[in-house]
Amino acid sequence: MEEIKQVTHIDNVKLSDDKKSVVIIDQTQLPNRMVYLTLNQLEDCYEAILKLRVRGAPAIGIFAGYAMYVLSQQYADKPYDAFAAEFHRQKEYLNSSRPTAVNLSWALNRMEKVVAGNASSGVGEIVELLGRECVKIHEEDIAMCRKISEYGLSLLHEGDGILTHCNAGPLATSRYGTAIGPMLLGKEQGMNFHVFSDETRPLLQGARLTSFELQKAGVDVTLICDNMASIVMKNGWVNACFVGCDRIAANGDFANKIGTSGVAILAKHYGIPFYTLGPTSTIDMNCPTGDDIKIELRDPEEIKEKFYVEPMALKEVKCYNPAFDVTDHTLVTGIITEKGICYPPFTESLKKLFD
């Protein structure tokens, strides 16, 4: 019988030993190089989010919490009003780096509440409270990922084929991850699955990150191009689709990496259950529908030049490069959170999570 081993977890975001910097794995260097970055300047933290050195909605939230704590130490000698003003300025600047992922604004607002809620305390004490809060954000995410993975695993069976898009594993979150967490947890418990990982054009998170994580964990994974999902489903090799999410609207529409909505449409056509997995911090009850989600547009050169030795299109050719698309709630079988699995109608089931 195969020996069951716990999946190795790598801290992709953490505080430095002296708590003066945030240490991240530079995800742009994977899978060929494991490079760690030590960050303690506002511009560097902004650039790390913008350039996807740290990515994945929950991981961005964890990083933002640590970053604000690290940065706040640098102006802790200011009186409260000046400290709070500078904290707000830096928070808003970081928040502008990637507008679609709700976890970024959620974590930043949570950190600012510590500042606003302790105005009568000394600034030194506030900084200490910020340190505790950012650690709490990380610890809560670890616990949430475990619960999400357990709920997701309850829907799977031995030998299932699962298709996933983009990357929602430990690198994008903490510990098990969200969308591929059930596969990693199942592997620990002796279950075997076959995972089809979309490459996820144009930034190839599925190729560089998801297949990397699953292969290292000993999960049977096959990398496919995005336009191969249909034939894999038609062949009967997929029993369920598990994807992550960057923002979930109150009606169950959700934003995820570009191409996700196409996977959902294909799954609907072939009668395959389609689930999105994410923490409740990803749910934005102030966002009525997917039409209200702001979609980030990225540099067109990512399509023509990134990962190529030479450009793959003429310089004059225009490109449209949205980072995300929105999957309509009518295509979603269920939304898996740390508080349970929500089923349609999502306007009711999502609301109950917060009641």
Rank of each mutant, 00 (worst) to 15 (best):
residue 16 S to A: 04
residue 54 V to N: 07
residue 14 K to P: 14
residue 98 R to G: 01
residue 290 G to A: 00
residue 60 I to G: 05
residue 65 G to I: 12
residue 22 V to H: 02
residue 15 L to M: 13
residue 118 N to V: 15
residue 230 S to K: 07
residue 285 M to F: 14
residue 33 R to I: 14
residue 260 T to M: 07
residue 157 H to F: 12
residue 81 D to H: 08
residue 110 R to C: 08
residue 113 K to F: 15
residue 102 V to L: 13
residue 219 V to M: 01
residue 140 E to R: 05
residue 166 C to R: 00
residue 265 I to E: 11
residue 149 S to C: 06
residue 313 A to S: 08
residue 216 K to N: 12
residue 35 V to Y: 12
residue 304 K to I: 12
residue 32 N to P: 14
residue 204 L to K: 01
residue 303 I to W: 15
residue 307 F to E: 08
residue 116 A to H: 10
residue 297 L to A: 07
residue 93 Y to L: 10
residue 277 L to H: 03
residue 176 Y to E: 12
residue 231 I to T: 09
residue 278 G to P: 14
residue 283 I to D: 12
residue 331 L to F: 13
residue 189 Q to V: 10
residue 235 N to W: 07
residue 60 I to Q: 07
residue 155 L to C: 05
residue 210 T to M: 05
residue 244 G to D: 04
residue 324 F to Y: 13
residue 194 H to Q: 00
residue 13 V to A: 04
residue 241 C to S: 10
residue 126 I to Q: 05
residue 287 C to Y: 08
residue 49 I to H: 00
residue 242 F to R: 03
residue 248 I to L: 00
residue 197 S to K: 06
residue 187 K to L: 01
residue 185 L to V: 07
residue 34 M to L: 14
residue 161 G to H: 04
residue 192 N to Q: 08
residue 222 T to R: 04
residue 301 E to H: 08
residue 272 I to Y: 13
residue 316 E to Q: 01
residue 271 G to W: 07
residue 149 S to N: 01
residue 157 H to L: 01
residue 83 F to H: 06
residue 160 D to E: 08
residue 124 G to D: 13
residue 188 E to Q: 11
residue 295 I to Y: 02
residue 323 A to K: 04
residue 322 P to K: 02
residue 254 F to V: 12
residue 68 M to G: 03
residue 219 V to S: 00
residue 118 N to T: 15
residue 169 G to N: 03
residue 141 D to E: 13
residue 131 G to Y: 10
residue 71 L to T: 07
residue 248 I to F: 09
residue 284 D to C: 06
residue 103 N to P: 15
residue 1 M to Q: 11
residue 347 T to H: 06
residue 237 W to M: 09
residue 240 A to H: 02
residue 262 G to I: 09
residue 321 N to R: 06
residue 262 G to A: 07
residue 238 V to W: 06
residue 154 S to D: 11
residue 121 S to V: 11
residue 235 N to Y: 13
residue 30 L to V: 06
residue 301 E to M: 02
residue 321 N to Q: 01
residue 133 E to P: 10
residue 263 V to C: 00
residue 238 V to I: 04
residue 233 M to R: 00
residue 261 S to W: 14
residue 174 S to T: 05
residue 189 Q to S: 05
residue 8 T to S: 14
residue 52 L to K: 03
residue 40 N to M: 03
residue 24 I to C: 03
residue 333 T to C: 04
residue 166 C to N: 02
residue 13 V to H: 12
residue 60 I to N: 00
residue 68 M to Y: 04
residue 275 Y to M: 08
residue 162 I to H: 04
residue 203 L to Y: 09
residue 178 T to D: 09
residue 192 N to S: 11
